[in-house]
Design a protein around this nucleic acid. Structure first.
Lengths: 223, 223, 223, 223
DNA sequence: CATGAATGAGCCTTCATTCAT
DNA sequence: CATGAATGAAGGCTCATTCAT
């Protein structure tokens, strides 16, 4: 009946966590309420009691853990408004990668997030508005800082897409990567390496391809 | 029981095509045998008769249409062994994009292919061996042509990943793109533009980042 | 556990009233304890606490409000033992109709009462003994006054049934009436008209059919 | 998937009959698909297969057996257009009573029909249009033949209601009758007696109360 | 080969009821 | 007395699969 947004009872929290893991592993459809409650060690009816229905639980998981994930890996770690674009980009990419690839407390959240992008449910619109659009705007502004604010929007969108794409890939194509490199997760060092690669790769590409000032020769490069 | 791989009866073919479309639209799980048979205009029992079970049908769809898709958009269109790497890369990217984004005859196959990457089923291993690995090897050799064959493998994998990532993104994150730019498919011209962007973006990035020594030698590298 | 029958706590009374309305609207089965408690503004557990179980609550509602309804519309309003049968009949019919069709304070009780007749629950036996049988006896004596006390019992029962039937109809077949005349309740004037019709219709029928000898003796009877 | 209207497979027919009985006994809500299928001796899924869902089954029961019931007890048995109103009325009342009180093959249908009037479901609108309205029109025309076609409509409706009411009563108030007369069904002879009573009672009442010509003395009475 | 009916397992949800606090 | 969480039994429905014809 009453749909809480925070401060769950013990059972509520346990359901929330179990649900996150199982939704991430199996997807919304394949995941069953029974399995979630079994893992949480509670009665099946409790998801309806606490979250209304399966969909309500799903939405609760999404909104509840998004914030936690963001707090753990803030996209502006170590940078501020005056930092150079390349620093901002690096921070953004690292944050993004750690959030979707990390092995820590909410490691399943990355899976869930990307899964929702791949196969949106009704909860997706909320996620777009609350999580994706702000993130996208931030990246767009970083890109603008690199290629110049007078660059046409289409170009900036292409660059933004290229950056996001490279990050998402390591999560969404995990299955391919696993078969090709033979492991199914990344160490912190590897994530750092990937972050460095994506940052450099994208930064140089944008500068060479689109940076309006790149021919002037007077540009301030990395410190 | 007996899984045919070619020479389907009329009913078999119709099921195969209907199944392809519906699997692509809805995913393996959500797709129902009844819906597939309804679209194919045949009796429900026939999928079990011809393909053993639902999963057998899925595998059949994947293996049957992969070749057709490749024939329609060959990854080496207009290039040969002696063409410069940039031409090869452009051909590869265009082929890839058209296969997964195109609107034509087997347009659903792109969806299906990417969906399988995102959420592998038992059919995935076959697909990796028969389709992904060859394609991956081809791209690796193209990348090697750009960054130099003496570049370390890890670096080459990173570059390969960046290129593939950018292509896949436009299919896998279709949901996000739709909400942000407001349309849900791409015109041929747009696909060409995207192909150009990805090619140029990746090419310049690889040249600047990893092939710097061979051209300028004095370039300021990060870190 | 302990079933109180009077002197309810505030919560108890509120449950009782809310239950009456909801039982009347939805029937015993369809009505849910949660809905009743929601309308009463109390906790769900209280119905079990105060009334044992859902059925106990139902019984309590029935016995508690029957008396109130009778007091509001007494079946002998304006008549006494010496009044002529037609006056007694009119008073009875009016009382009956107002109790089951009225829009006032306990208007839902009429619905509930009739619903119980249509679809008896365990509470029905109590209701028959305490409410229906006395009322039936009263009507039988009125009928006897019209057709003569020496009329055979079967005939009197038939007449009694015809009168009660006409009254109940306007409540029990409300759904049909609504679709045919297009409205879903009756005004006080309409109830009066209906009462007049039923009284006159029944009175004349009884006189002509069964009391013919006593008045004309020469009337042409059917069959 | 395919909703048949007649010619059911064996299982389909058995479900239909079992459903009729159980719906009549317990009402739509209380009746469970499981119970129906248990009585029919078939698998639970078959009601969904044959009738779509529980509601579809209910509707099928209603439409399927209504016709059968009408055929068994036609409301114009032994009368034609030229028969006098009293004969038409007698035929109507007998048909009605036998349909809702009879003990024969579809005896449960009467319960079901009346139950639907008392507590309408979504199927009710169909029933009103297909069964009730035509029946009501027929009775109205019979009433008009008795009280004169120039009688005002409100009066005719009151008379029609009085007749229908007396018939329905014996079904809808079965619970009361049972407790008062001590039996729970009527013999054929009793139904005939009731039919005679209702016919005479109503006929004389209409003639005395409302027949415009009753004072002229020239009226053609019964043959 | 093909069909339509039939099966059984499993899923989400509802609801009266109970229990610890 | 009162509360909010928790329970367990059903209930309707879906779906892949099988079977008799």
């Amino acid at each position: 009946m009453s749909l809480h947004k925070a401060s769950f009872t013990d059972a509520g929290s346990r359901i929330l966590e179990a649900a996150g893991e199982i939704f991430a592993e199996e997807g919304f459809r394949r995941a069953t309420v029974r399995k979630i409650c079994a893992r949480a060690g509670v009665n099946v009816s409790l998801v309806n009691y606490h979250f209304g229905d399966k969909e309500g639980l799903y939405l609760a998981v999404l909104t509840h853990f998004r914030q936690r994930s963001l707090e753990k890996h803030p996209p502006n770690l170590g940078v501020d408004e005056s930092s150079p674009p390349e620093e901002k980009l690096r921070a953004f990419v690292r944050s993004f990668l750690f959030r979707i690839l990390g092995q820590g407390e909410f490691s399943w959240f990355g899976k869930l997030f990307v899964r929702e992008i791949m196969e949106p449910t009704k909860a997706f619109d909320v996620m777009v508005d609350e999580a994706i659009r702000p993130s996208y705007s931030l990246l767009m502004s970083i890109v603008a800082g690199v290629v110049g604010h007078d660059t046409d929007e289409f170009t900036m969108r292409l660059c933004t897409a290229s950056i996001v794409a490279q990050c998402l890939y390591y999560r969404s194509s995990r299955s391919v990567i696993t078969r090709i490199i033979g492991r199914d997760h990344f160490t912190i060092e590897e994530i750092e390496q990937i972050a460095s690669h994506i940052t450099r790769f994208s930064l140089e590409a944008m500068r060479v391809c689109y940076d309006a000032e790149k021919t002037t020769g007077s540009r301030n490069r990395e410190g």
